[in-house]
Every structure is written in structure tokens, then in C-alpha cells.
Design a binder for these strands. Structure first.
Lengths: 199, 199
DNA sequence: AGAATGAATATTTTTGAAATTCTTCATTCT
DNA sequence: AGAATGAAGAATTTCAAAAATATTCATTCT
């Protein structure tokens, strides 16, 4: 029964992610994956040039999912302030999920931070663009005073990094008096609403 | 020639820091240190219970120096806004210095982040207190509208973490279009000046 | 006595060979 | 022919012994 190339590829991605979540990245071998897929190790290599590339693909998928979720928030109805708040809340929540709900996935984050550095950077750029979308809307509707949207997005992103960088978030986790996403969002929204004298 | 306990202790700290800066933390042995001090390895242990404790003491010194520098800025003359800007600039500069000017010192940061976690946390608390000093002054002079100073300090600290967390700073280093300390300071100052509706 | 040490012990790091895992490719299967 | 594989070769990881380093302590020195 001929499965399409695409189907097989997806099957591999699916099974691999399952194994990663169950046993962790390090303990999952290509043999494990090929067995789970009911094929030979060698066959995996007809679809992915290396284990690293396979892992990258999974990271990309995860990241793409996150971006989709965030994109929906950025483009949802409501005022710019409302969306910005929601955006920051969701971003924080996603980070927490990936950090805590599944410790195994954290290995993937580490992998991404080292080998997959470019993908991560692109991800941050995309988030920046989403900030820009919201801020641009806010300026156009008069909710925020005019400003250099691109710079503003970059600055907001930097200020919010404390909520999406795994290392930073992890460090602050057991400080139960830490600044909340809501407080940081309020800070950012306040600044955008009242952008006064240029520095 | 009887040196005082205190003198010997300082000699050890001095020589050890010298060696750390030259050869790095990992490659410096207790033997190296005792030789540099002209004494036996065993004698080091009369002053410090372990290599780890000795390193902690050095970290504390470095951190204390940073805090002193920042404290001066926080308590300098000028408006709260001016001091806040300067504070953030100096904090960023210090981080850059410790990160780049001396790669060897970075090992110490890593050490501090793992073994010396409590010291680091205290350091962050002190910085938070310095933020609180500036913000409190701003509120008292009417430069900032009234607010919960402690919460504001915590939030500002979180937003500025992107400028003082070594990992984060390092990551953004080769992005030459990154948000500047001045931009982030402007964001924060704007927010403080116009703290409007509570969230 | 208190300061300092050399030598002994405990802990950590390094090393190199064995085992595991990744990757390739000539061959088989459909 | 294209899909898939088993077996061979590279690369990486593991693990235990050896080396280096940290730490202790009985003894020496002043």
C-alpha cells in the first residue's frame, strides 16, 4: 500500500515527537524512531538528512504552532492595548507550558538554543513583527501617539524578554512575588500610550 | 614577620582573583593559588573552608563593587528620570564589561549562576531596592505620579533584565540593530511618568 | 600556644578503549 | 524504476581505571 512521501514524512515527525515527549531527546535513538514507524533506520534518511535535521523540523513545527497562536491574538478584534495584554499573557503561558508541563521538551529548547540558533532568532523576529502589527494598529486608530513602529516593537520585545526567555523565566519561577505578565504589560502599554518627549 | 589574619586573607583573595582573570576559574588550582601566595595548599584552608567558598568570596567582592557603583548613580543628584537613565546605562555597561572585556570572568558568572545562586538573587534584590530608591524620589518630588513603589521597582527590574542578564545580553550582542539601553530606559521612564489607569 | 606544613585521603577530571548510535551505500524488493 | 533494507563504516557516548585536584589532619615550626 503506497503511502505518499508526505504521509511517511509526517508519520516520522509524529512518532519522533511522541518519543521525544516520552523519553526525551537524548534517549531517543534513530532505531527507536524507525521501529515506532515500522521501518528501517536507513529509511529515515530518505526523508531527513540527519537526526539533527529531523529535530530541527520538529522544533520548527512547535515554533510554528506558537507563532500561529500568537498571530491569532495579534490579529484578534479589540483595542491595541487589549491585544497587547493578551499577547504577552499568552506568550508567557506558552513559555511556562514548554518549560514545566513537559520537562522533556526543555531538552529541545536547549537543543534549539545551541544548534538551532538561527531558527530561534527568526522566531524572535516574527514575534517582533507581531508586536509591530499591534502597535501599528494602535497608532492608526489614535490609541497610541505616533512613533517609529519598528523601533517601538524592538524595544517592547526587549522589555518582554523576561517573560519568554526560558532561562530567565526558570530563574524567577520560585520567586512567588515576581512581576506578573500583567504588570509588565501595563508598563509597556502605559509607555506606548504616553510616548512623550523623545529621549 | 607576623602578618595579620586579615592581611593574609586579603592576599589570598587578591592572588586568586589575579589568577582567575589570567587563567580562568577552571584552570586555577589551589596549588597555583598557594604557590602564588608563597604558602602551602593546606594553609589556604585555614582561611577558606573550600575552593568554592573562596570563589564565593571573590564573587561577592565583584558584586559588591558593582552594587557600590550602581548605588552611587541611584543616589546622585538630578531628576529621577535622569538617574534612572544613567542607572540603566551603567548597569548595561557593567554587564558588557564583565561579559566581553574579560572572557575569563564569564566562567565566574556561570559559577555564580549555578553554585552561587543565592548571592546572585540577593544581588538582584539589591538592584531592585536601588530602583525603588529612584522611583520613590520621583514620586515624592512629583516627577512620577503616586504608585506602589515596591511593585513598580519589581516590574522595572523585570523589564530591564534584558540588559543585565549575561545569557540574554550575549545572545543579542551581534544583532547590531538591537534595542538600546536608552530606548528601554525611555520606555520605562515614560511608563512611570504616566502611570494611568491601573490594569 | 598558634601558625604552617607535608603527607595521606577523598573527590573530581581525564583518558582511552569498548559499546552504542548515526549515517552511508550496495543490494533487494515490489 | 523507485522504495526499502541489511550490513558496513563513522562518529559519538559510556565507563572504568588512572591522573589530577581538593581537602584533612597529625606533626613540625616559631
Amino acid at each position: 500500500m503506497a503511502h505518499s512521501q508526505e504521509e511517511t514524512r509526517n508519520k516520522i515527525l509524529e512518532e519522533t515527537e511522541k518519543l521525544y515527549r516520552h523519553y526525551g531527546y537524548a534517549k531517543t535513538t534513530i532505531s527507536d524512531i524507525s521501529e515506532a514507524c515500522g521501518m528501517s533506520s536507513a529509511n529515515i534518511y530518505r526523508f531527513f538528512p540527519s537526526k539533527s535535521a529531523l529535530t530541527e523540523a520538529i522544533c520548527s513545527n512547535v515554533i510554528h504552532g506558537i507563532e500561529q497562536r500568537l498571530s491569532e491574538v495579534a490579529n484578534s478584534p479589540g483595542t491595541a492595548s487589549e491585544r497587547l495584554l493578551k499577547f504577552i499573557q499568552v506568550m508567557y503561558q506558552v513559555t511556562l507550558e514548554n518549560l514545566l508541563d513537559n520537562r522533556k521538551v526543555h531538552e529541545l529548547v536547549v537543543f534549539a538554543m545551541t544548534e538551532q540558533w538561527l531558527t530561534l532568532r527568526t522566531h524572535l523576529e516574527h514575534i517582533e513583527e507581531l508586536y509591530a502589527v499591534i502597535i501599528k494598529d494602535g497608532v492608526e486608530t489614535g490609541e497610541f501617539p505616533p512613533c517609529d513602529v519598528a523601533r517601538a516593537a524592538k524595544t517592547v520585545q526587549a522589555a518582554a524578554v523576561t517573560l519568554c526567555h526560558p532561562e530567565v523565566v526558570a530563574m524567577k519561577l520560585d520567586d512567588d512575588d515576581r512581576a506578573t505578565p500583567e504588570e509588565i504589560a501595563a508598563l509597556i502599554i502605559n509607555a506606548l500610550k504616553h510616548r512623550a518627549t523623545e529621549l
